[in-house]
Simulated assay, not measured.
Amino acid sequence: MSGIQRTALVLAIIGAINWGLIGFFRFDLVAFIFNGQASIISRLIYALIGLSGLYAISILMKPKEELGRDHEVEPQR
């Protein structure tokens, strides 16, 4: 898995955790850390997490063989 794929998955996981906190406890961690949902930094974080979620869809649709190519060892002849 490439670095950009790992980054997208990490951001998507952070977004999922934040949504879980909102759903269970009505607590928005991103807004808490960056002084509200309307701040520029919060909106940037939300946008990056949204784009990461969209990119994660492409990771989900890739065949298993393509995902494992980064760590494959060439067979010896």
Rank of each mutant, 00 (worst) to 15 (best):
I22P: 00
I33A: 09
L9E: 03
P63T: 15
I40H: 07
L11C: 05
A12V: 05
G23H: 10
I40K: 11
S58E: 08
G53Q: 02
I13R: 07
A31L: 03
P63N: 15
E66H: 13
H71M: 10
G15W: 09
I14H: 10
Q5H: 08
N35T: 09
K64N: 14
A38K: 03
F34A: 11
G36E: 00
I13V: 12
F27C: 09
M61V: 15
R26L: 09
N18A: 13
R77G: 15
A38D: 04
L67E: 03
R77T: 15
V10S: 11
A31F: 06
I57L: 07
A38E: 07
S58I: 09
L54G: 10
E72K: 12
R6S: 00
A8T: 02
Q76C: 14
I45H: 03
G23E: 06
G3M: 01
A38T: 02
F24V: 03
I49G: 04
M1G: 06
G20V: 12
V30G: 02
I59T: 01
S39T: 11
F24W: 07
A12T: 09
N35S: 14
S42W: 01
A31I: 13
I13A: 08
I41T: 10
S58N: 06
G15K: 04
R26H: 11
A12N: 10
A56Y: 05
S2I: 03
P75Y: 11
R77D: 15
A56E: 00
A16R: 13
F34Q: 00
V10M: 05
G23C: 08
L9A: 12
F24H: 05
I17S: 02
I17P: 02
G20D: 01
E74G: 15
W19P: 01
S2R: 07
G3C: 03
E65A: 15
P75A: 02
Y55L: 06
Q76S: 15
L9K: 09
G68D: 06
L29H: 09
